[in-house]
């Protein structure tokens, strides 16, 4: 089996006036060819450092990595011509129009928009009405689409997307992920990072990453299945008081807010009725308690403990 990306004990440390940061601590993983792989973790987890190392713009302090079979240190030229990269910051020329940006990137990679039109068609038709507009004047969602178009223009074998949906509203985010799914069907390997846990389930496999270490790496389904406790959702009209009272309950292992519900893990099983009784004594009304399946976010919280 050929891996699209292979990472072995990659290590990166930053030293500055304010101290030493271990951005990546001996990270190892592999991404299969044609896979949609997600790096899920909050800001400062090390996602951007890892992406920069893999796209050869940053050197690791230790370890080895290959992209499309090429070593990131010695064969950086080869990698640069076969990957697409969309950094976290918006990286297009604000004072060029949409069309000029596309042509510029096409020329940069020695190709034309027409040559790989099939690949970007889906996305391009959405931004085509604005092609005479300057990139700086585009909306957030449109900028995202244009950046993706530019990253795809040379039909890369591996696509690196660093937090493409950060700060983007839920609707645009949903559209963006649908585009990624379609790209995947065209056989492109995609590595995407995101701080939004709810996007994890849209990936084939994910790595949960925090403080420069991988907490868990598997398919979202398997990560969810490996959640070690039975999980309950509970709610009442006075949700904050409910949270405080449940924290005071002796058989609570952990309880935290989760959307409109609280998520609850008991120390020992079969205390549901006892808890409801306890809460009734505290004057809680209309309490709803039900068992639920864990989400990736629950798993992340569990792994952070």
């Amino acid at each position: 089996m050929n891996y699209a990306v292979e990472v072995e004990n990659i290590r990166k440390t930053y030293t500055s006036e304010i101290g030493t940061t271990h951005a990546l601590q001996d990270i190892s993983f592999a991404v299969n060819s044609g896979e949609l792989f997600g790096l899920i973790g909050p800001d400062g987890a090390g996602k951007t450092s890892l992406f920069r190392i893999l796209t050869t713009v940053l050197l690791a302090d230790g370890g080895k990595a290959t992209v499309n079979g090429f070593d990131v240190v010695n064969k950086y030229r080869e990698i640069r011509s076969c990957v697409g990269y969309m950094p976290g910051k918006f990286s297009l020329y604000q004072d060029l129009t949409v069309e000029e940006n596309l042509n510029f990137f096409a020329t940069l990679f020695g190709t034309t928009l027409e040559a790989n039109y099939e690949l970007v068609k889906d996305i391009y038709i959405q931004i085509e009405p604005f092609k005479k507009r300057r990139a700086g004047k585009l909306s957030g969602g449109m900028k995202q689409k244009l950046a993706l178009c530019c990253a795809l223009i040379h039909k890369p074998a591996v696509l690196f997307l660093d937090e493409p949906t950060t700060g983007v509203d839920p609707v645009s985010r949903k559209e963006f992920w649908e585009m990624l799914k379609r790209l995947k069907q065209q056989g492109i390997t995609i590595l995407v990072s995101t701080p939004y846990m709810d996007e994890a389930t849209l990936c084939d496999r994910i790595a949960l990453i925090q403080h420069g270490t991988i907490l868990s790496i598997d398919t979202p389904q398997k990560i969810i299945a490996s959640f070690p406790h039975p999980l309950y959702a509970i709610k009442s009209p006075e949700i904050y008081r409910l949270l405080k009272d449940i924290h005071a309950y002796e058989n609570t292992l952990s309880c935290y807010a989760f959307g409109e519900y609280l998520h609850l893990i008991f120390k020992e099983e079969n205390h549901n009725d006892e808890l409801l009784h306890f809460l009734t004594n505290k004057n809680h009304e209309q309490v709803v308690l039900k068992p639920i399946e864990a989400s990736i976010e629950d798993c992340f919280i569990e792994l952070l403990k």
Partner: peptide, 11 residues
């Protein structure tokens, strides 16, 4: 702007 990053990751 971050455009340098993209320029670098190109042939």
């Amino acid at each position: 702007l971050g455009t340098m990053e993209v320029l670098l990751v190109s042939p």
